[in-house]
Simulated scan of single mutants.
Amino acid sequence: MSVSNSKSIPNQSLIGTFTEITKFRLSVSVVFSSVAGYLLGADSIDFFVLFLLCVGGYCMVGASNVYNQIIEKDLDALMDRTKNRPLPAGQMTVRSAFILAIVLTVLGIAVLYSINPITAMFGAISIFMYVSLYTPLKTKTPLSVFVGAFPGAIPFMLGWVAVTGEFGIEPGTLFMIQFFWQFPHFWAIGWFLYDDYKKAGFFMLPNGKRDKGTAIQVILYTIWTVLISLIPVLGITGKLYLTPLSASLIGVLGVGLLYYAIRLYKEKTSVAAKQLMLASVSYITLLQIIYVADKFLR
């Protein structure tokens, strides 16, 4: 990987550039979801397979992020939030970024394939949908969030598929939880970053506006997210089960998430949207922890 010196930020390290262009924090959060899914599906933990899942998962997410930034390089330069990313800031050439993306893609698919073919297949689908469908649709239609929710929901169920080698009701439920969760999460982001997104022509809100209609949809999808999160307590999702105590804890988290969704509806401010975004991150993280703890402690 070569780094351009013509516009590079002083003291910008290769590691710093790598973590920035692969969106380290986002990628780690995605890997965390996959690990949670693995632990939920495992009868016994194979730490080598878990390691492979982490490496393969990071490569796949990192590759998606690099492809995304290559495609949106000129648009990223227009937004305050993204103008200092490696490509628009000149810390890395497009050629170097493309080589990195290809290496991460091949390595990611190979590592996931070594676990089992279906895991590699879902990883490849995730990259394809994120790069070829979600990314170009962001400047064309608010439906991009719907399309992007598919690859975004794969990681949680990918861990289960990695340990079982098959797709069924259990990983399907994990997929649906993270699928519906993404709507209030990304619409909240789209709301408080509305002006910045507008500079690049991104359409992220369902109505295209920060209005009552968008806020109502945020509430509806929040309710769906919480309800789907509680389905395993009914004992109808195969080996994926949730005890009443853990379901109660998730219910409390859900009430908190719904509170911030309703608050956005009432206030319609960027501050309320940012609070909802933070609440949504807390919700999905704590949900995954509760699910895993419930399995191993009961």
Rank of each mutant, 00 (worst) to 15 (best):
T225K: 03
F202Y: 12
V233Y: 09
V61R: 07
P244G: 06
I127H: 02
P117R: 05
Y260F: 14
F150T: 11
K239C: 00
K212Q: 15
G37H: 06
N65F: 04
L100R: 08
Y113V: 02
V55C: 01
T285V: 15
T237V: 13
V255R: 14
D43R: 11
I154H: 12
G37F: 02
L75H: 10
P184Y: 09
L40Y: 05
F47W: 15
I21L: 12
F48P: 05
C59L: 06
A77P: 10
V218F: 07
S34Q: 13
L258G: 11
I290P: 07
V281S: 08
L240H: 11
G57F: 00
V281M: 13
R298F: 01
T237G: 05
D74G: 03
I45W: 07
P86T: 09
L264A: 03
K212Y: 15
W181I: 08
S64R: 03
F51D: 07
C59Q: 07
I102F: 10
G208I: 04
L220Q: 05
Y194V: 00
N207M: 10
L39V: 09
N207K: 13
T19F: 14
S126L: 02
K198S: 06
F179E: 01
V226F: 01
R263M: 14
M277I: 00
T269Y: 08
A293H: 04
N11W: 03
